[in-house]
Every structure is written in C-alpha cells, then in structure tokens.
Design a protein around this nucleic acid. Structure first.
Lengths: 154, 154
DNA sequence: GCTTGCGTTGGAGCGTGCTCCAACCCCTAC
DNA sequence: GTAGGGGTTGGAGCACGCTCCAACGCAAGC
C-alpha cells in the first residue's frame, strides 16, 4: 500500500465507518471542513454514538469541546473526525484509559510521537490477534452450521 | 471447503485455540478421548481460563459438571472440548445469555436444531461484521503508524 | 409570559463478566 | 493427629463503559 492509497483509505475510513455514518455526514465532513459546526445531537449521529456517550468521552478526558455563548457544546469537522477515530479504536477494544493516554501524548506535541507509535504498534498487534481470534470463531461457527446440515451459505 | 476439510479444521480449532492450549493438551484431548478425567485446575489450563471462570460458567448454566465422591468437579475430554467451544464463542463476543440459550437448546434434543442454526447464523453475521470492524480499525491504525513515519512494517 | 425542546451539570445506577472472600470439606504426607 | 494443599459453596466486590436522573438554563414559537 503506497502513501496515496493509504491516504485514500484513510479518507474512506474517516468518513465511512461501519458504525453507520451517512452520505450526508461524508459531505459535511469533507466538503464543509472549516465552517460547519454541529450541536451534540448531530455530532453524535455523525459519529454513531449517543449524546450521552459524547459527554462521557469528554468527562473521561478523551476530547475537549468548546462551547457557544449558551454553554452548549460545539463540534467542528476535525473534532468529529477525531471522535470517529476514537470510536473506532474503542469499538476495536482499546480501553478508554489507553485512549486518554494517547490524546495526552498528542497534546504534548511532536516530541511524544515515538510514544504514540509505541501505543499504536501495540494496538495493531492486539488487533491482529483479535482478527485471528475472530477468524477462528467464524470458522468454528461455520463448521457447526455446516454439520447441522443447514445450507445457509449466502 | 468440503466436509473433510471442515472436519480437519474443526479438530484443529477444538484443540488449538489461540488462547493458548498446549501440545500436551492436544494429546490429552485427542488421544485419550474417553478415559481421561481432569480436576478443575487442569481443565482450566486446558481451556485457557481460570478455575474461577469455570465455576462461574457452571453457575451461569453453561455446563453441568459431574462430581467425584469428594464433591470435586470432574471434567472429561468432551466437556473440555465443549468449554473450548464456549470460550471461543465468548471471546468472540457472544454473551453468556446467548450461550446459555444455545446449550439449553442442545439439551432439548434434535428438535431444536433449526433454532440452534438460527442462533449460529446470527452469530456468524455478527462475527463477519466484527471482522470488518477490526479490519477497518487495523487499517486506520496502520495508516496512523505509516504517517507518523515509523517504518515498523514486519 | 409560558410552554416545549434541547442543552447543561454532578452524581448515581446498571449490566456484564469475572474475581475474590470466608468458611468449610477432603485427602495426603509426615 | 495434624498441617497443608487442593477442592467446595454462597455471596460480595469490582472494573468498565455506558446510561440515566434531577435540577436547572437558554431560545424559539405561540
């Protein structure tokens, strides 16, 4: 995978998580990068979690979200993309504590890039192990299905 | 995948879970199918969980385990293979409640095979979705690693 | 002005899946 | 007989990640 392909892939990832981000969300995120802002309900929809969860993530220190004059949270496109990334890491099993550690490293600037790399590499290995586990479970499940005589192949 | 390949695969799955079942465990499970029996500590090692967890699974209704005259649990090879299967389903995200439902269906005999198939097919779909999720998370992680400039490819 | 709706907060509650504890039992070795 | 090392039980505790609640604030529409 060369860098261009990786960029294309990353863009796809940022805007099209399997959790369910819509085409409109894509357009919001890609086309109106700078100016657009969302309230918590809309941002939650874009990210694919509940507003509750977004507030929880803020409380947990994963993000800091600016407020409008009324004190309401205001999310912009980069913030939403960050949340999509964080959510992806979450749903793939990275604990909140690790994610907090990661964003703290990001906050501390480029000097922490090696540390971040360590975290990412570790998580990558975890993901690979998970992948193997799931593939095994899938094979076992498909075997059971086959031996039960169900011809349920798609 | 024909049936023979599936059988071979299933055997491999039953005796070589990534959780860490040893070669001795394999031999125990395959060669000494009928006569061998294990106490809870040994069975736990074979399955790759703690004795605590095995007792918990029994309390949760996933298995019923016979006792020796002293009242100690006695596990035989089929029981351990069943536990390996259950553990694989667990670690791949099937909740205890679903597993209990499944084993209840098994207990009720062949008439429940269609219901079991439904459960399995549903879980298979869940697994496929999980697989896609993890692959996306892996791609995202590898992209981050690449853009941080770390040449950490294996 | 008042209702409605969405937002805010701190704090409590909950479901899951273990994990541990206390009190006890059994068997073996010394 | 007694100490030690395993096992047994019911029940409590815990970590995690939400999820909800009460009490309140702001803003728009009638």
């Amino acid at each position: 995978m060369n860098v261009n392909e990786q960029l294309a892939e990353a863009l796809r990832l940022a805007v099209d998580p399997p959790g369910g981000v819509s085409v409109e969300a894509l357009q919001d995120l890609v086309l109106d990068d700078r100016s657009r802002q969302w309230d918590i309900a809309t941002a939650a929809q874009h990210v694919g979690v509940s507003p509750h969860t977004l507030r929880y993530y803020e409380r947990a220190g994963l993000v800091t979200v600016p407020r409008n004059p009324a004190g309401h949270r205001v999310y912009d496109a980069p913030a939403v993309r960050r949340l999509v990334f964080l959510t992806r890491m979450r749903t793939s099993g990275m604990p909140i504590s690790d994610l907090r550690q990661y964003v703290e490293l990001v906050d501390r600037g480029d000097v922490t890039i090696p540390d971040r790399l360590d975290l990412l590499v570790e998580h990558r290995d975890t993901l690979r192990a998970q992948l193997a586990q799931i593939q095994l479970a899938l094979a076992a499940t498909e075997y059971k299905i086959a031996t039960y005589g169900g011809s349920t192949q798609p």
